[in-house]
Simulated assay, not measured.
Amino acid sequence: MYTIPIWAHIVPDFTDKKAFSAYQKALTDDVTPLSLDTENGTAEFEGKHGHYAASLEDCPCGARPKPCKHMYRIAMELGIMPGKPASNTSKVIARQATHEAGVTSGSVRRTMQGLDHDALSLLDTVACHCLSNGKMGGSPILVLRTPAVAQLVNLGLAEETIGDYLHCGLSIGKEGIRDALQRAGLDAPEKMFRPNARWAKIHEHLQSLYESNPDAVNSAFALLDGTAVTYDKANVIRREADHILYPRDDYTQPSLF
């Protein structure tokens, strides 16, 4: 029988950026466990970087500090922490199959060739964000909710997260955020989006709007996980996207076979 750890009695909030982010990610279907042992408080996960056997005491995923999203998810699944996490077993099983088969540069290129221009441009933005955050990934990136988002998520080229508008990176300018809020019928004070306005205030405003009306905010924006694209894959994406989006006469497309 497992012992309930001290951290499981505390629901993280915005005062602890990393813990709050891990808790929010634990609610997504991306962290659906492959299996759960309710007797011993352990679970198996298929993460973006491999297979993890986690418990309430530890997880080998590499995230620091602990508890990580996998440990929070176990606590939610056991009912010792609040939360109604989304589940998608088929998604994580498909990821497991991908890991077992291996992801090659050729497979990434083949997938990218099926993207339209908007989706490819968005994927390039996500890859740039991943590379700028280093091999361990980082904060999510805020993008406009467009069909390109769904295309990338459905193909497994990006993963959506929720909730952390305070610490997200941005792919949209102030006017773009203001216009998206207005289209969604949300409060967008003009003075907040002036050229000299502080970005911190915009982040706080987005977070406040999300807490009061999450559906409306989610209809306007998407938060793409900063670790959704692995560092190595991001390098391939950036290289190939550059040639497709900005073609040069001296470039020869590598063979896919």
Rank of each mutant, 00 (worst) to 15 (best):
W7C: 08
C128K: 06
Q96G: 12
G156N: 13
A234E: 01
D124I: 01
A53E: 11
Y23A: 01
Q253S: 08
G83T: 15
A158F: 02
G62Q: 14
T111M: 04
A19Y: 05
Q151F: 00
A53T: 10
R239W: 06
R109G: 02
L122C: 06
A19M: 11
D124E: 07
E39L: 14
K174W: 01
L170C: 15
I4K: 15
I172V: 11
A97D: 04
G62C: 09
Q182C: 11
A8D: 08
M81Y: 10
D116T: 13
V217A: 00
Y231T: 05
A26R: 04
Y23R: 03
P33I: 09
P5F: 13
I237E: 03
R239G: 05
D13M: 12
A63D: 12
D215V: 06
S55N: 13
V108I: 14
I93S: 08
A150L: 02
G134A: 03
A8E: 04
P247G: 04
V143C: 04
K84N: 15
L144Y: 06
V108R: 01
I237P: 03
K66Y: 07
P254S: 10
T32A: 14
G79D: 08
N196C: 08
I244P: 01
N133H: 03
Q24A: 13
G41C: 10
P254E: 10
V153N: 03
K174Q: 07
L155I: 05
G169M: 10
R95N: 12
L186P: 10
D118M: 07
M112A: 00
L123C: 01
H49D: 14
C168V: 13
P67I: 11
I93W: 05
H51T: 11
R64T: 15
E240V: 01
D118F: 09
L78A: 12
V153R: 09
L142S: 05
L152W: 01
A75E: 07
L223E: 09
L155Q: 08
S171W: 03
Y210Q: 02
I74D: 00
Q96L: 10
A63T: 12
